[in-house]
C-alpha cells in the first residue's frame, strides 16, 4: 500500500466512504462473524422447542363406548386434559339455541362437532385464559366453569362469561369408526 501514500491520494485514512480493499475485508469479516454467531445461536434457541419424540407421541386413539350420555371422560393428550363429552339432546338444543347470542368468540354449535355427531364434543380441557382445567357442569350455562378466574363456558364449550378470550379449543380429530376416534 506504500504506493497509495506517495501517489494520488495524500491521506488514505481521510475519506471513510471511499471503498477500499481494506473496507471490504472489514465488512466481509464482520458479516461472516455475525452470520456465524447467528448460526450458532439458533440451535441454542431451537433446542427448547418440542423434540422429535415429543412430536411423535402426539396422537392417541379413544373408544367412545365407555362414555354414557351426559357424562364426560377426561383423558391425557399431549400432557393436557382432553374432554370427551357425550351430550344429551337437551344440552345440544341449548347450544344450538345460543348460536346467534352475543358471543365473544362467535361460532355455531355445528362448527364445533363432526357432521352428524352432535352428541360428541371433543375439546382440549384447558381454559383459554390461563390454562386451568374447567369443571364440567358448572356455571350458568351447564357447560364448564373454570375455578381459577371464573370463566364460564356453555354446552358447546363456547366462552360466555369471565376473562377467557376464546372458546375451548377443538383439537384435530377424526372418527375411525362409529365408536372410535383418533385425536391429533
Amino acid at each position: 500500500m506504500a504506493d497509495t501514500v506517495v501517489g494520488a491520494t495524500p491521506d488514505p485514512h481521510a475519506s471513510g466512504e471511499d471503498p477500499s480493499r481494506r473496507d471490504f475485508i472489514h465488512i466481509a469479516a464482520g458479516a461472516a462473524a455475525i452470520g456465524a454467531v447467528g448460526g450458532l445461536v439458533w440451535p441454542l434457541i431451537d433446542q427448547m422447542n418440542p423434540a422429535g419424540d415429543t412430536l411423535a407421541l402426539a396422537s392417541i386413539e379413544f373408544d367412545l363406548g365407555k362414555v354414557e350420555p351426559g357424562q364426560q371422560v377426561v383423558v391425557k393428550w399431549r400432557g393436557k386434559p382432553l374432554f370427551v363429552r357425550h351430550r344429551t339432546p337437551a344440552q345440544i338444543a341449548a347450544a344450538i339455541k345460543d348460536d346467534h347470542a352475543d358471543l365473544r368468540d362467535p361460532q355455531t354449535d355445528e362448527e364445533r362437532h363432526k357432521a352428524g355427531k352432535a352428541e360428541w364434543l371433543i375439546l382440549v380441557g384447558t381454559c383459554t385464559h390461563l390454562g386451568c382445567v374447567p369443571t364440567v357442569g358448572g356455571g350458568d350455562y351447564g357447560g364448564w366453569f373454570c375455578p381459577c378466574h371464573g370463566s364460564v363456558y356453555d354446552t358447546s364449550g363456547r366462552i360466555r362469561k369471565g376473562p377467557a378470550p376464546k372458546n375451548l379449543e377443538v383439537p384435530t380429530y377424526a372418527f375411525l369408526s362409529d365408536s372410535k376416534i383418533k385425536v391429533g
Binding site: I45, M48, N49, P50, A51, A58, R78, G79
Partner: peptide, 10 residues
Amino acid sequence: TWLWGGFAVD
C-alpha cells in the same frame, strides 16, 4: 410452546 418444550408443562 418453546418455553414448555412440548404441548404442555411437562
